[in-house]
Design a protein around this nucleic acid. Structure first.
Lengths: 134, 134
DNA sequence: TCCTAAATCTGATTAATATCATATTTTAGG
DNA sequence: CCTAAAATATGATATTAATCAGATTTAGGA
C-alpha cells in the first residue's frame, strides 16, 4: 500500500522508479519491496518496464483502480471476507455470534476500499488533506 | 475468541472444562488452545483451577468483560490501534492518506468491542439470534 | 499422606511469512 | 549487435507465529 501510494504520488510521464530508489523512502526492506512490486506488477495493479530507463510506475488505468484490488492481490480475497470465527456456513441467514458485530463495520470498510481509487487518495494528499510516509 | 465463547456458553456452576474436552469441539489444535487458555487465564480474561476436577471456566466477573479485552490480550493493544501505514505521527491532526478511510470504520469496530461483553454475545446465542462454532 | 488429575511453565519443533541472494530475461543506447 | 541497466524468476535463509512435548506445580479424594 505504501509503495503504491508512493508511486501514485511520484509517477510522472517521464519518470519510472527503481526498487533501490523507493525502499528507503518508505521504510520497507529492499528485497521485500522488490517481491511485492513484482507481484503487483504481474497482477496489473502497477506497471513496469525492464531494462535501462525502466522501473515501476502507474499507468492511467492503474490510477483508477480501487484500493481493494491491492488488498486482494496481496492478502487474498478471503482475508477480509471470511468469518472471523472461521465458521464455514456463517452468513446473514446463519450468523455466528460475531457476525453482526464484525459484519456491518467490516462491510462498510470493504465498501470504502471498493469505492476509493488510488487517484482519490493522492488527490487528498496533493490538496493537503492528508500526508504520506517517511 | 472461539474458546472464550465456548466457555461462556458451557460454563455452569459445577462444570469446568479441560483443554482435551474443548479443542475438538471448536476445531483448534490442542496444544495451541492450551497455550492460549493459559495466557487468557494469566491475564484474567478467563478463570481456571488446577488439579482433579479442575479446568477452565468463566467467573461472573469474566462474563462482564468487554470483547476488546480478549483482543488486546492476544494480539496486543497496538494491533487494532496503530496506523495502517505504520506512520508514527499519524493522528487526526496529521492524518495519513488512509487515516480517514480506515479510521472511522475502525474506531466504530473498536467501540463495539468495548461496548459488547461476553455475556451480551452469548445471550444472543441463547436467544437463537446467532449460532456458534463446530 | 499419597496418588492422580488437572493447569502451568519452559523449551523445542514445525509452518508460514518476510527477507535475501542470484541467475535470467528484456530493452535502451552506443 | 553489444553492453549495461533494469525487472523477473527462483530458490535459500531468517524471523515470527503456531504447534508440540514434557517436566513442574497444585489440589481433590482415598
Amino acid at each position: 500500500m505504501k509503495a503504491v501510494l508512493f508511486l501514485a504520488l511520484h509517477t510522472n510521464d517521464n519518470q519510472k522508479w527503481m526498487v533501490k530508489d523507493i525502499y528507503s523512502r518508505i521504510n520497507v526492506p529492499q528485497s521485500y519491496l522488490a517481491k511485492i512490486l513484482q507481484e503487483l506488477s504481474k497482477r496489473d495493479v502497477i506497471s513496469s518496464s525492464r531494462g535501462p530507463k525502466g522501473g515501476f510506475y502507474l499507468s492511467e488505468a492503474n490510477f483508477d483502480l480501487p484500493l481493494i484490488k491491492i488488498v486482494d492481490v496481496i492478502d487474498g480475497k478471503q482475508r477480509l471476507r471470511s468469518c472471523m470465527l472461521s465458521i464455514k456456513e456463517c452468513d446473514s441467514d446463519n450468523p455466528c455470534a460475531l457476525h453482526d458485530l464484525v459484519g456491518n463495520t467490516n462491510s462498510e470498510f470493504i465498501k470504502r476500499l471498493e469505492q476509493t481509487t488510488i487517484l482519490d487518495l493522492i488527490s487528498d494528499v496533493k490538496e493537503g488533506k492528508s500526508v504520506l510516509p517517511l
